[in-house]
Nucleic acid binder design. Structure first.
Length: 818
DNA sequence: AGCAAGATGCTTTTT
DNA sequence: GCATCTTGCT
């Protein structure tokens, strides 16, 4: 009879198998993109269990909650479920801090401050230290404090290392900020790591006990660990040395927030006799994609060479699209997605990636105008809404009577006749005496708050006390409901003022999330308000990436790490965007430029079948037009064999600035590519004019408004491909662009040859082998083979160039009229 | 105390 | 372009 352990090794390649069967002792798995890393980790965990290791003796640390969830699911499929700790570094530290609260110097009911709360408190430190933000920019101080914490440095150490007055001020701010955190019984994200790292370092007996508990460590994305995380991993594996780290130095993209690529590079020195396994076979992408990514990353000097290989076919070349303006870029991408969807591709097959969140706006508008369902990976967005933050402030105030940041927020909304003067007096008194805010409110006359305001303050305090009592006897969800209703928040946000209904719905959603939290709790007794709030604060963007939402996914390149999609668009490949300005500064120099390159590498390697990179000559940035030149990365990765350039409406700069109102005139994009190729010089641009006028900017108001009324998400994920197609085509009928019959535009439209306005649904229906086509750089060729499917692929023979394969929707190929 | 209009500054990426 | 902060008015 075959053992289950053998079954676990099936369908693994030699390297993967070596990593899975590796027993005790340090193991480093260097895993290139798409090399089946997650499979290896999960199979390794399951294999260990199968060989007699107890699940509760295994600790798996991931970078995101989503990765943790995925791993848990996969392990469940592999029949390993309970007992194993699978969590992020931050969640791990949270749990340890709760257990060892006293040793960590916190009260277990502490609040976790997010970015915004942290900023509030740092500002307060500025006031207390009498430092002006003009002298030390607030973000500089925040960055410096965060860095110090990552390196486990105290304010005193920072002060000793200070080189100038500014550094001294920062050290002072850090010290004050820490005191404020303590007084509020709060920690920030960095504290979670720092305090646990210190705990393990300073209390060897705790470290020892945890070594016994967690006999095997599995750590994902090791290249992204910062010093504190590195220290934690080391201490937790000090005695048994059973640490399995996986990662890829070429995908290290978090150095800017303290991640140290050296942690992975020196693994072999840190752990004597470490076994190193390299996973170099890629199962994800076609060759053209892989080779292009490889060519780009090979430019980095600070790197260990690595050979990525694949048994998959060439696939279509990587496409580079050049546009005159960011608006055209968005329109064209939306159009291409619409077209491919009409041919049977699911919307969820597409991802659009960008360097900075600000670039999502135009894309959203273009997708909405075409009624293409999309989702933005922004998990925190929900918890960042005003009404949600307000509700959470009430809850934090109930759970943690020292949390003045929460009280200050709660007391102000809805307005209850307690203004800033009163609040400041209360806060000042709390600061002076160190009493909890509830106590201060109860005795507010001592804080010089008298008369009517005093009555209101005491009334507010009584309400909080009432809820605190309720918190002890009812479920979290019913408390959340009660607080939202009784605080007056529900009423306050019910007004017909903009988005009142949405806000109500969001507040309801918060209650739902509390219900879901209770359901997820295995042991009911563990569900507590504090725990719920702490969990909520560790939610991140990546967690909002849904597997099969039936939507096009939009996200930053950072968020995309670890994901894969059949078709990937990376927009904004321009100097200043990708690589970003901050990486191009003289002082930043090569290190950050190399990180930008890795970021681009991560982006390209997300693509399974098709990668499209776009670049524009101009785009709106912060509301102002900005001229841009193409990214150096495009040049570095270029190769005529695997990268194909297309130009769309180059030189159309300036004239169309201003906004997203251009109607759903999809047909006017697509295959009417300009006949210019290389660096569209000014003389070549002349021929573009007629095309340029056909773009109809600013004239599509009716279509735009129509789109605004329709929901962004209208696709049914469950529907079969055929059903979806049918639904789509019926939609298409209604979706017929409502042209505003602006004279100029309509004339431009008519003046174009009919065949160049290819029909979206029946595109290429009449294309057949033998037909002549034109490619802007290869010239005239003949169609050898046409393959219809999710993408229409065509094999075309060019005299002197040989045969090449194209995805027609993505290439600038035109039919030649005979 | 509370609100509204105007001024300011800011955007890289995230647990 | 947006969100946040400041100012000034009721």
């Amino acid at each position: 009879m075959r053992e289950y352990a053998d079954e676990l090794l099936e369908s693994l390649n030699t390297a993967q198998r070596a990593a899975v069967v590796h027993g005790a002792g340090p193991l480093l798995v260097l895993a290139g993109p798409g090399s089946g890393k997650t499979r290896v980790i999960t199979h390794r965990a399951a294999y260990l269990v199968e060989r007699g290791v107890q699940p509760e003796n295994i600790l798996a640390i991931t970078f995101t909650n989503k990765a943790a969830r995925e791993m848990r699911d996969r392990l469940h499929d592999l029949r390993v479920s309970h007992g194993m700790w699978i969590c992020t570094y931050h969640a791990l530290c949270l749990r340890l801090m709760r257990i060892y609260a006293e040793s960590c110097g916190v009260d277990p009911g502490f609040t976790i401050y997010d970015d915004a709360d942290q900023k509030t408190l740092v500002k307060k430190a500025y006031e207390l230290c009498d430092v002006a933000t003009e002298v030390v920019p607030i973000d500089l101080a925040r960055w410096a404090i965060s860095n110090a914490k990552n390196r486990l440095e105290t304010p005193e150490q920072l002060e000793q290392a200070a080189e100038d007055h500014k550094d001294e001020l920062i050290a002072e701010l850090y010290a004050t900020y820490q005191v404020l955190l303590e007084r509020n019984n709060a920690v920030d994200f960095d504290d979670l790591l720092m305090r646990v790292a210190r705990l393990l370092r300073e209390q060897p007996e705790v470290a020892q006990r945890l070594n016994q508990r967690f006999q095997y460590l599995l750590i994902d994305e090791y290249q992204d660990t910062n010093h504190a995380q590195y220290e934690i991993a080391r201490r937790l594996s000090e005695h048994h040395q059973n640490i399995c780290a996986t990662g890829d130095p070429d995908q290290s993209i978090y150095a800017w927030r303290g991640a140290d690529i050296r942690n992975i590079l020196r693994f072999e020195q840190d752990y004597a006799d470490a076994t190193v396994v390299r996973l170099e076979q890629n199962y994800r992408s076609y060759q053209h994609i892989l080779r292009t990514a490889d060519r780009l990353i090979a430019v980095n000097r600070d790197r260990k060479p690595k050979t990525l290989w694949s048994e998959r076919g060439d696939g279509p070349p990587v496409a580079v699209w050049r546009f005159g303006h960011g608006n055209v870029e968005c329109e064209h991408i939306a159009q291409a997605i619409g077209q491919q969807h009409a041919e049977g591709r699911a919307f969820s097959d597409f991802a659009i990636l960008y360097r900075i969140n600000a670039l999502s706006r135009g894309l959203e508008a273009a997708l909405r105008a075409r009624r293409i369902p999309y989702r933005i990976a922004r998990g925190v967005a929900f918890y960042n809404r005003k009404e949600i933050r307000d509700a959470l402030a009430y809850l934090s105030a109930i759970a943690n009577p020292d949390d003045t940041v929460a009280f200050a927020r709660a007391i102000a909304t809805p307005p209850r006749g307690i203004g800033n003067t009163t609040l400041q007096r209360l806060l000042a008194y709390a600061d002076r005496t160190g009493k909890s805010f509830t106590t201060v409110m109860r005795h507010c006359d001592q804080a010089e708050v008298k008369g009517a305001p005093a009555r209101r303050v005491r009334a507010f305090e009584r309400e909080i006390a009432k809820w605190q009592q309720a918190a002890g006897s009812e479920t979290v969800s019913s408390l959340v409901r009660r607080v939202i209703d009784e605080s007056g928040l529900a009423k306050h946000y019910s007004g017909a003022e903009s988005g009142g209904e949405d806000r109500q719905a969001n507040l309801d959603e918060l209650v739902t999330s509390a219900v879901r939290y209770e359901e997820d709790m295995i042991d009911d007794s563990e569900a507590s308000l504090t725990d719920f709030l702490q969990m909520v604060s560790l939610v991140s963007d990546q967690d909002a990436v849904d597997e099969d939402s039936g939507c096009v996914m939009l996200m930053t390149l950072h968020t995309a790490k670890g994901l894969e999609f059949p078709v990937v668009f990376i927009v904004g490949l321009e100097q200043g965007m990708l690589p970003h300005d901050r990486a191009l500064g003289l002082e930043a120099e090569s290190n950050s430029l190399e990180e930008e390159r890795r970021l681009c590498f991560v982006g390209i390697t997300r693509a399974q079948e098709q990668a499209v990179l776009t670049t524009t000559q101009e785009r709106l940035l912060r509301g102002k037009p900005r001229a841009l030149s193409r990214s150096q990365f495009l040049v570095e990765m270029d190769d005529p064999d695997s990268v194909e350039w297309s130009d769309f409406g180059l030189g159309m700069t300036g004239r169309f600035g201003g906004g997203s109102r251009f109607g759903g005139s999809s047909r006017r994009f697509g295959h009417d590519t300009a006949d210019l190729w290389e660096d569209g010089g000014a003389d070549e641009l002349a021929g573009l004019d007629s095309d340029a006028t056909s773009f109809d900017f600013g004239a599509g108001a009716p279509a735009d408004e129509d789109a605004a009324r329709s929901p962004a998400v209208d696709d049914q994920p469950g529907a079969s491909g055929a059903a979806r197609r049918r639904k789509r085509s019926s939609l298409q009928d209604h979706d017929e662009p409502v042209f505003s019959l602006d004279d100029e535009t309509e004339m431009a439209r008519r003046s174009r040859p009919a065949d160049r306005r290819s029909d979206v649904v029946n595109a290429y229906q009449d294309w057949s082998p033998g037909m002549l086509v034109r490619h802007p750089s290869y010239g005239i060729g003949s169609l050898v083979l046409i393959q219809r499917g999710p993408q229409t692929r065509a094999r075309i023979k060019f005299p002197g160039e040989g045969e090449k394969t194209f995805v027609l929707e993505l290439s600038p190929i035109e039919r030649v009229q005979v």
